[in-house]
Simulated assay, not measured.
Amino acid sequence: MTRPLSVQLYTVRDRLAADRDGVLSRIAGLGYGAVEPYDPTSDPKGFRQVVDDLGLTVSSTHAYALLGEEPAAVFDAIATIGTDLVIIPGGIAHEEFTSRDGLARTADLLNGLAGQAAAHGMRLGYHNHWWEIEPRIDGRHALEALADLLAPEVFLEIDTYWAAVGGADVPGLLGRLADRVLALHVKDGPGVKEEPHTAVGQGVMPVPEILAAAPGAWRIVELDSCAGDVFDALAGSRAYLASLEVS
């Protein structure tokens, strides 16, 4: 891998709340080299100290807080944790992705935040679920139509699982979005909205084809939910993804 494999910390949210330092240590012990926080405003100095001590990189961060808190304070926290890739992971009404007017409003919001991010030396991105994929605008997935309206510096973090659930041929989608995609959420499962996820490689996703379609993007493992032990699933995911590198 050209970049270390990352974990979206939402995967371990409950355990993280109980023992942040121990959970981060365990993730590093599994062989992951990076993490993606979901709340950079939660003790950013303490978080940075722990990840630095463990030798972990912060690949990127989700930042719902930008939609409701003072942006400058949020960007300061993000600078403290040590990344320049800032991602809006939702928080925009699903209906906005069903019309051209809604997409225009969404693009205006994201482009405005991207300008503020740039002033802090950062880039802003957007992370999809299924509701940006299912609607079609002029025969294309809504997310593709949105991409046309975004400023060039705004990137996409494609959640490959939710893109598939939304009806996309994920390798094809990645190929069309091309250099707009800087990060992937790599996850697996049965491909059904309400069912728990599995370790990567144990579900229905065509993982090798997906990774080949975006070879330069960050690879970030996430399980929104997990039927078994989440650390076992993280270990299995890493082992599978590592096997693809040597096969």
Rank of each mutant, 00 (worst) to 15 (best):
R176A: 12
Q116S: 06
A119F: 03
T106F: 04
L113Q: 00
G189N: 03
A73P: 14
H197Q: 15
L173F: 08
W131Y: 15
L103G: 07
A117W: 03
L67Q: 12
L184E: 06
R105C: 12
H62A: 12
R100S: 14
G102V: 13
G82Y: 05
D108R: 15
R140H: 14
L110A: 10
G125V: 01
R123C: 11
V165F: 03
G167Y: 04
L56Q: 05
S99K: 14
L109V: 10
L156H: 02
D138C: 12
D76H: 07
F155K: 11
D76P: 10
A114Q: 13
A183P: 03
A168L: 07
H129D: 09
L182P: 05
S59Q: 08
L174I: 07
A147S: 11
L143C: 06
V58A: 13
L109H: 08
H141W: 00
V192L: 13
R123W: 10
L146W: 15
I133Q: 01
H129E: 05
R180I: 00
A107G: 00
P89A: 13
A151T: 10
K187R: 13
L184K: 02
R136I: 15
A119S: 13
V58G: 11
W131M: 14
W131T: 14
T61W: 01
Y64P: 13
S60N: 08
G90R: 01
I88Y: 04
E157V: 05
A63D: 11
D169Y: 07
G112Y: 05
A104E: 15
D159E: 10
D148R: 07
L182N: 07
I81D: 02
A168V: 11
L150V: 07
P71I: 00
A178H: 01
V86L: 06
D179F: 05
E134K: 11
F75P: 14
D169F: 09
T80E: 00
L56G: 10
I133E: 02
G91F: 06
A147N: 08
G68D: 12
S60R: 05
V181P: 07
R140Q: 15
L173T: 02
L149T: 04
R136E: 15
A142F: 11
L182T: 10
G139P: 00
G68V: 15
K187D: 10
H62W: 12
N111M: 09
E69L: 15
V86N: 05
G175E: 01
A93N: 08
T198L: 13
D101G: 04
A145V: 02
L143N: 03
A147L: 01
D179E: 11
I78L: 07
W162Y: 02
S59A: 08
A107D: 00
P171S: 08
P196S: 01
G102N: 02
A118T: 11
F155G: 06
I87R: 01
P89Q: 09
Y126V: 14
E70C: 09
A65V: 08
I133G: 03
N128L: 02
E157Y: 13
G102A: 08
I92A: 09
V192Y: 04
P171H: 05
V165Y: 02
R123T: 13
Y161M: 00
